[in-house]
């Protein structure tokens, strides 16, 4: 059972710095876009799109999911899926109530 390979991926310094700089740029971008004051659903949508892109970069490259076994990526995606499930089912109640806070 001795497994011969020690093939842990070693990211190059250039790659890591590249990701770091990309994250920096995206941060500046999201602040700038927020300053524009887009109309209501679009402001939050762009902010979340940028945040998701940043999250993707961190997860894929800093956390090494890109080179890792697929199962670890599945765990991350699964966690997000269950979070979305929790939020959306809860919203089915809170968005459709007659009174927001019942009877108080």
């Amino acid at each position: 059972m001795m497994s011969e390979h020690h093939g842990h991926h070693i990211a190059s310094a250039k790659q890591l710095w590249g990701i770091g700089i990309a994250l920096l740029i995206l941060t500046v971008l999201t602040v700038t876009v927020a300053g524009l004051g887009l109309p209501s659903p679009f402001d939050i949508l762009t902010a979340m799109a940028i945040a998701l892109t940043k999250a993707f970069l961190v997860a894929a490259f800093f956390m090494g999911l890109y080179w890792d076994t697929k199962f670890n990526s599945m765990l991350l995606i699964g966690a997000l899926a269950f979070f979305i499930l929790m939020v959306s089912i809860t919203l089915l109640d809170t968005l459709y109530r007659d009174d927001i806070v019942p009877s108080f």
Binding site: D68, L76, A79, L80, F83, V87, L91, T94
Partner: peptide, 27 residues
């Protein structure tokens, strides 16, 4: 590493509760 990832799943749902409260009240 797998153990840590499973733990991170925990962490995500732990914070998830707070994000859920945030979303409900923001809506």
């Amino acid at each position: 590493k797998l153990g840590m990832w499973v733990f991170l799943v925990n962490e995500i749902l732990f914070f998830g509760g707070l994000f859920c409260a945030y979303i409900v009240f923001r809506a």
